[in-house]
Write a protein that binds this DNA or RNA. Structure first.
Lengths: 347, 347
DNA sequence: AAAGTGCATGCAAAGGTTTGCATTGCCAAA
DNA sequence: TTTGGCAATGCAAACCTTTGCATGCACTTT
């Protein structure tokens, strides 16, 4: 018995053969005699030999690990994406390292440095809401690490992208609100540098334009973070307009729910006086009262696809930089927080 | 310019000194002359030298990574714990690898094998609801890997534990229900092998005993998984009793919300006809209607403490096996889903 | 001048595995 | 018998860093 764990050398010594032969036998190298292979494998089994991946990593200059950078995981959205990623990666030889930026650019930088140090093999990323500059990701790419961006786009970064057609989702939602008779539709927008914020805003604006509903600047407010206080403040700003909006299209379900709460506190009837539509379709959105109308996104599938794309790059490291861009279609889900009751009070 | 990334040898060659000197200079070894250190550091900076952690891992026989095994992350509970863990670990030199068992014993085994292969340095674990046998964790410990168990206990496993006083929480909740006049209190219990299930059940039973409320076996049902269908079925079983319960104490908020939904579908008034109390205080529980009474747990702190305990073991690897057991006190949060309206209908 | 002291640095091994090339032994063809 | 070829295995380098011990040098002390 030796001290530490069993190595390939231990097996070699025991069998009076060279370590290289053991290695080849274990890996079913064709130049090794059948009996040798069997003997080696039997002894390896008996000694409970575990290959030392650390040594392999050094040799191959790769960590067999992929990093996933997300802003947070306490909401359903990113945790569901991660679950999708995990369910794909778990069937590969890769390990997965989840990193939280906490919506902070600084922390995102630190994470990227760390991942680069441990020689990460690939990265899945959804940038923080503070991130405007993507040079840290470009630097990763330059050192040969493939990157797949999901949900929140990084404009100017050439990489694989798995996105949602936020514009389409927002357009649908707002056109639906117009269709049920709303004409003072406010938008509670997300943090301004996010691509998702921008696209949802644009969808909102275009839906208004197309349907000849006047755009009122006072009906558009953006939060810069996701804390309850901030959202409450922004909502009050919307609701303190001299002309009360008759609908709020919110950037996300969480914003919508916060807004709903605030509206209730101000004594407003939902959807009687004001309709509310969110975005994300978080599971609990169906359970609040009134149940929240929202825009559903195929989160789990997005996670799986992102992971698959990254894996395919890792299998073929020499492929030219031909990036995929996959855009999922979201779907409007109508529930009780919005209601066709304005047509009457219209005229 | 060389091909790959800059190594310590490149710096040594450039400066006509030995690699070992470079290493020592970079690590501020006292035996190195000041000027040498400065020269080395300057060049390292200029060449953007990144130490190769893979080589270090091999040398030290450790991966500088700790594993976190959780059953799922789509709920708030585990994702908040993980956030706490992460916020502590991020300030250490360790990386963190999050693994999802999906409440499956099989997958948990696979994860443990994987972690062992990559020479993980320490593990934080909350076992799956299927896990009855903890030998896989014991095996890890035998190979010198410290384990900290959190939330869900592993009875028979000697390790550090960061738990919640589930018994106390359940006792408080049920005694409160009795206090507001309920005397047909049902329990919608969790999966049977979980320590949390057991302790919450015991708290429920003892609260009834202490207050001389009759225990009715038909009022206790356990789910074996957390799918909505299963919970619905279990709830219906409870509500189909010839004597309708006047309260349900549920194992978790998610179960409570599912049950609430089912009860509503059956036309029951909450809390008019039946009070409901959950466990966990998920953030959305405050937003559903009626807002859910529940038992709050200091999740984020639990995550942080678990991580700190593990780190302290990693700093002092030679400490004797003296395990800590930290038990957090949960707190009853009373909201609208339970109401003091039974005293009238009592007599 | 010889011996002693201490500082600054170099040498080489170690960690476990893979892999290109070399080597050995054996049999068949010339 | 020599040569060629093949099958099976061994050798040694490589991946990069750290670290115990040795070395070299200059200066002080006797």
């Amino acid at each position: 018995m030796k001290k530490g764990r069993v190595t390939i050398k231990d097996i070699a010594r025991e069998l009076n053969i060279a370590p290289s032969t053991v290695s080849r036998a274990l890996n079913d190298h064709p130049a090794i005699k059948k009996e040798t292979k069997e003997a080696v494998k039997a002894l390896a089994e008996k000694l409970d030999y575990q290959p030392n991946l650390l040594a392999l990593n050094l040799l191959q200059k790769k960590s067999n690990t992929i990093g996933v950078i997300v802003p947070e995981i306490t909401g359903h959205f990113f945790s569901a994406i991660i679950t999708g990623v995990q369910d794909v990666i778990v069937h590969s030889e890769y390990n997965i390292m989840i990193c939280l930026s906490n919506e902070s650019y600084e922390e995102e930088l630190t994470i990227v440095k760390r991942l680069s140090k441990i020689q990460i093999d690939g990265v899945l990323v959804s940038p923080s809401s503070e991130t405007k500059n993507f040079d840290h990701f470009k630097k990763l790419q330059k050192s040969g690490i493939p990157i797949v961006v999901f949900d929140r786009d990084c404009p100017g970064l050439e990489a694989d992208k798995v996105l949602v057609d936020d514009y389409f989702g927002a357009f649908q939602a707002v056109e639906y609100l117009i269709g049920i008779g709303c004409n003072r539709i406010a938008h509670l927008g997300g943090p301004l540098n996010l691509s998702t914020t921008e696209h949802r805003l644009q969808g909102y604006l275009d839906a208004l334009h197309k349907n000849k509903v006047a755009v009122n600047d006072q009906y558009v407010v953006h939060v810069s973070g996701f804390s309850h206080e901030e959202v409450e403040l922004a909502t009050k700003e919307l609701l303190n307009n001299n002309e009360l909006p008759d609908a709020i299209f919110a950037y996300s379900d969480n914003l919508a729910i916060s807004a709903m709460h605030t509206a209730k506190e101000l004594g407003l009837q939902i959807p009687g006086q004001i309709s509310i539509v969110g975005f994300d379709d978080e599971p609990h959105s169906a359970f609040i009262t009134p149940a929240l109308s929202t825009v559903w996104q195929p989160v789990y599938s997005m996670g799986m696809l992102s992971a698959r794309i990254l894996l395919s790059h890792l299998k073929n490291p020499n492929t030219p930089p031909e990036y995929r861009k996959e855009v999922f279609k979201p779907e409007l889900v109508i529930r009780a927080s919005s209601k066709e009751n304005k047509l009457v009070s219209e005229d």
